[in-house]
Amino acid sequence: MSIEVKNLCHVYEAGTPSESRALEDVSFTIENGKFVGIVGHTGSGKSTLLQHLNGLLKPTSGQILIDGVDITADGTSMLDIRKKVGLVFQYPEYQLFEETIAKDVAFGPKNLGIEGEELENLVREAIEMVGLDYEDYKDKSPFEISGGQKRRVAIAGVLAMKPEILILDEPTAGLDPRAHKDVMDMIKNIHEKYHNTVIFVSHNMNDIANLSDQVLVFAKAKLLKDASPREVFAMKEWVLDKDLDLPDVTNLCEALREKGFDLSETIIDIDQAEKEIYDIFK
């Protein structure tokens, strides 16, 4: 599913003294099946944008087209939009509430009117997709499992809706290194299996470099850059000036290039770095 955002503006508390602009004239296109990373500091407008993409917030002005359908137009069914666009909030495990994991995951599709065997199959698939054994976990309380597992159950709840666009707001925030890797691997698997469009917000430039086809950089309510990760990280000075980081491997390779090593410009993955460095000494 494609997404087209045109001249999107959002003003919180418009017309009051505490009025603040959260998004200013934001336009971009995301093609079907892309893996998109969003970066930017707290307060740059990222979360406001995400909430527009599944219709939780209405734009002050501008348009959002999901597969050509204007979701901001009067009469568009929000239920249809939310079926297609699944949004995983920050710290989604705080939203777990049911007495068993299976019931919690079933909550979304059940609200869409799905029941019986079809519902059970969806729930089973979603729980297994996040790497948990259905039989082992379905009757457990979502409150007696580890933090990383809770996060996965919460993501399963969104996956059970079979969203064609999956949006995750800082999916690894607060996780330990192992849970971090598990969750990122899981998102990658979901993308590979369903070929869905995935949009994720992250402060981790290594993840952004490893996974995204396209990167959107936000600062102070504006979309500053819409490009491939290689193009973004090629603007080294610019990235640092925006108080963002470069991937570790880019830092290393740039340092080597400065010392006269003949490496490609802006290497963003370790496999390439390994190969090119080895080739020099071979």
Binding site: P177, R178, K181, L252, I270, E274, I277, Y278, F281
Partner: peptide, 20 residues
Amino acid sequence: VDLTPPLAVELGDRLRARGM
């Protein structure tokens, strides 16, 4: 223990495995 070594260690390991 599922901790990721720093990049320099990781890359050092890989280059060493290739005989450097």
